[in-house]
């Protein structure tokens, strides 16, 4: 009999995420990668500020909660103190691409040997649906009630492409989790981003296009479709850097 088990690297704490939110899927993929690589005992994770602020309750490894946007700096400190440990930061788009962009770019430019999982759902979730640096043009949010207008609110930031201008990063890939095939692909990418760190290859960064049905005002099913229809055209999936390849 095949039993579908919870990864060991996830705790038994029930997740607080909204129905249809894809954080749960990505948490699971990270935990599966940690399990399969056998690194839970030496992994230290950094949680952001945002919807996944309580991620420290969900991962069984040692966890640190960072100030808003500062997870890459905290991760840098941890990795410098514990070079043999595995260190990952898990961050959303407001945290990583807005308030923490300086830390993101600088950590990538230094090529710190750590792993960052970037959840891009084009909106601020925890504060109730405000415009994110990755919100699409025309996207209606609480703070762009008439749709994001590039004249006053600028254009969405493509983080993988931006980081790909740097020399140091070892691995940059954008994936999504809106169907089974894409989940499997995301799992491969996340695992590789951890394997790279084990192998000392350097900065590995996975952007995951994610759904926020609650703040997008959609059903979970419609939200997954919206990733295909609206997000992927703006944020094409694929590998933007792979030093191995």
């Amino acid at each position: 009999m095949i039993v579908f088990e919870k990864p060991h690297a996830l705790t038994d704490t029930p997740l607080h995420y909204c129905p249809g939110c894809t954080h749960g899927i990505v948490h699971r993929l990270v935990a599966e990668a940690i399990d399969e690589l056998g690194i839970e005992g030496r992994t230290v994770g950094i949680a952001p500020v945002g919807c996944s602020v309580l991620a420290y309750n969900y991962f069984n490894c040692d966890m640190i909660e960072a100030a808003h946007g500062r997870a890459p700096a905290v991760a840098t400190g941890v990795k410098r103190a514990l070079p043999d440990n595995i260190v990952f930061a898990y961050q959303g788009d407001g945290d990583l691409a807005s308030i923490g962009m300086c830390e993101t770019v600088s950590t990538a430019a230094r090529g710190e040997n750590l792993t960052i999982i970037f959840i891009n759902n084009a909106i601020y979730g925890m504060t109730g649906g405000q415009m994110a640096p990755t919100s699409l043009l025309g996207q209606v949010t609480q703070t762009s009630p008439y749709g994001r207008d590039p004249k006053t609110q600028g254009y969405p930031i493509r983080v993988c492409e931006l980081l790909a201008t740097l020399d140091a990063p070892a691995y940059l890939e954008r994936v999504t989790v809106n169907n089974v095939k894409n989940v499997r692909n995301a799992k491969r990418a996340i695992k590789k981003a951890f394997q790279n760190q084990i192998d000392g290859k350097g900065f590995s960064f996975i952007e995951v296009l994610s759904a926020c049905p609650t703040n997008w005002g959609m059903t979970p099913q419609k939200a997954l479709q919206w990733i295909d229809e609206a997000m992927i055209p703006q944020y094409p999936l694929g590998v933007f850097r792979d030093k191995e390849a």
Binding site: I46, I64, A66, R70, A73, V74, T76, R80, E103
Partner: peptide
């Protein structure tokens, strides 16, 4: 800001 947060990490 990054410096003090690196300290926080260590």
């Amino acid at each position: 800001i990054a410096a003090i947060n690196m300290v926080y990490g260590v």
